[in-house]
């Protein structure tokens, strides 16, 4: 059954959820046996994947830093997952207590959990919606009256666009989101890839299809395309751990271990 908004109306607990598997890999306990079983299966096939997930969260933190340093004080975090550790609002509000964050996820349990956790945080909001319906995300975000779309904002799409298959036209979705953002806004994307990856990594990523959605691995070129005509900031769309590492020691000597690219772009268009 589908609700009128196209979101599944039933909570299927017999299936692992991407959000909870991810939480497990980050060391959280916001997960159930079914999630941990899948997580262990994935980890057994490729010891790299848990590290990739951590690297994804670390990339997000570093990207946030860049945005915060450029004065961005409002964020739309789509595919935000279960608020575990190092959440966007924590990072943002630590730097700027007035920072506003709107979280969006398709997972009803992640959404319910976020709502409970953020109940007392007046500068945050949570939307239950599907990235594949960006108009709805934008209209609900506007209705919350937390974000000012006439001012620069940060759109965060960390580890989520690969859940959108090509038939759902991710390029169009990204274009819709970009069109809604004022000049000076930023777009942050991390996205799984098949480039430079060993076969077992690719197999394991396919395993994630056991969660509600399958993953579509994409090339660097495809991922770069998601930034449209925005200006991609240095060092470009690169393996996540190579994106502005905190210290050289954080990057690995043996080349790209992690199966995902990360990039940040800024809307440098002038109004009109």
């Amino acid at each position: 059954m589908q609700k009128p908004d196209g979101l599944p109306a039933e909570i299927d607990l017999s299936r692992p959820s991407a959000a909870r598997v991810y939480d497990y890999f980050l060391g959280g306990a916001h997960n159930f046996e079914i999630d941990r079983q899948l997580a262990e299966q994935i980890a057994a096939m490729t010891p790299n994947l848990p590290a990739t997930m951590r690297a994804g969260r670390e990339f997000l933190r570093r990207a946030m830093r860049t945005l915060l340093d450029d004065g961005i004080d409002q964020f739309l975090d789509i595919g935000s997952g279960i608020p575990t550790v190092g959440n966007v609002h924590e990072v943002a509000q630590a730097a700027n207590p007035k920072a506003r964050v709107v979280y969006v996820d398709i997972d009803p349990v992640a959404v319910a959990h976020s709502r409970e956790l953020l109940a007392d945080n007046a500068l945050t909001g949570v939307i239950h919606a599907d990235l594949r319906d960006p108009e709805r995300i934008l209209s609900e975000a506007r209705a919350l009256e937390l974000l000012d779309f006439d001012r620069p904002l940060g759109i965060l799409l960390a580890g989520v666009v690969h859940f959108v298959p090509d038939v759902d036209r991710p390029g169009d979705i990204l274009a819709t989101l970009r069109a809604a953002a004022a000049p000076g806004s930023y777009l942050v994307i991390s996205h799984s890839t098949f480039e430079d990856q060993p076969q077992e990594m690719l197999d394991a990523q396919r395993l994630s299809a056991r969660t509600a959605t399958e993953i579509t691995l994409r090339s660097r070129v495809e991922i770069t395309g998601f930034f449209g005509d925005w200006t991609i900031v240095e060092p470009g769309v690169v393996h996540m751990e190579l994106w502005r590492p905190d210290s050289p020691s954080e990057t690995t000597a043996d080349g790209p271990r992690f199966g995902a690219f990360g990039g940040v772009a800024r809307n440098d268009q002038t109004v009109g």
């Binding site: 059954m1 609700k3 009803p108 349990v109 319910a112 709502r115 956790l117």
Partner: peptide, 21 residues
């Protein structure tokens, strides 16, 4: 705490879905 939190979120989500239905 986290197990309780996620279980509560699950019940909440289920309630919400049922209510929406």
């Amino acid at each position: 705490r986290q197990q309780e939190g996620i279980a509560r979120a699950m019940w909440q989500a289920r309630d919400d879905a049922e209510q929406a239905l």
